[in-house]
Amino acid sequence: MRPFHYERPRALEEAIAGKTEASRFLGGGTNLIDLMKYDVERPASLLDLNRLEGLREVERDREGTLRIGALVSNADAAAHPLVREHHPLLADAILAGATPQLRNMATMGGNLLQRTRCYYFYDRLTPCNKREPGTGCPAKEGVNRIHAILGTSEHCIATHPSDMCVALAALEAVVVVRGPSGERRIRTEDFHRLPGDAPERDTTLDAREVVTAIEIPARLYGRHHTYLKLRDRLSYAFALVSVAVTMEMQEGRVSRLRVALGGVAHKPWRVPEAEALLEGRGPEEARFGAVADRLLQGARGYGHNDFKIGLARLAIARALHQAAAATPQSHVAKRIA
């Protein structure tokens, strides 16, 4: 990899002050270091966040908002009693991703900001608009099995690969960030962006901002939730399609439904109009198809990934069924429930 400076700021202010366009924050390094070896990320300096205080806590306030520090490891978050009790969906989604070794290293902040797994993006000997703006997007007519079917642009059809973020979208989590001008709270759905004509930008985070925490509002979905992930092998593969669902029930009716899709777009995909189709009524299986159709409105394939449209439809229906039946998908069992 290219030579770079390595710094370990001791205070958040120091980290923010030291940050430039050309430097990168380092969390667990499971994505960033790989990309540096591939010569895709070429930071002039790395600001290692791991010495910072106050970013490793998991707390719950009086309103029931759960706050998870940006440096909490994915493994710790998934195992934390507060997370397991109040947001099992998040634990499940985290456990559906990567491997125990990777989850031990990966941080919440890093997971949010991990980059796409598009094959071309990782291979510097091929063109790629996200890696080198203006060079083109070979994925559109090339190998695009893992690519997006929703919200694509002519410049990029990559997906955001995180499982965790799909759950965060369904949980309507808020990303807490700090920059030179103080703190900002960004709704997850506004945090990641669509590629548009600037695919090199994954998020709305400013170059000098650091993620400090993730906040999840209180939700009473009980066991009416699921994270269903379909992939090319039963573990250790990114989602072809995944579905996160929380279904709050009141007297047999769906009072609040949140559905987010993974593996289909440049960001976790939510369509409030689709959710509204079930709200205020019983979780009737007969309507699941309509919810899926609305979620997938405008979907288009690029060849290899055409199947994702049909697969997503099936996955949405199953996930809604799992949530309605209060039988969330297990991520320890070697099978789909």
Binding site: R117, Y119, Y120, Y122, D123, L125, T126, P138, E141, G142, V143, I146, D232, R233, L234, S235, Y236, A237, F238, K334
Partner: peptide
């Protein structure tokens, strides 16, 4: 990728072999 004439999933994250769960 037949346009580039190149294997594209050249790493073992994207070139799949069975995992234990399989």
């Amino acid at each position: 990728d037949h346009n580039l004439g190149r294997w594209m999933n050249h790493n073992i994250a994207e070139y799949h072999i069975p995992a234990h769960a399989d």
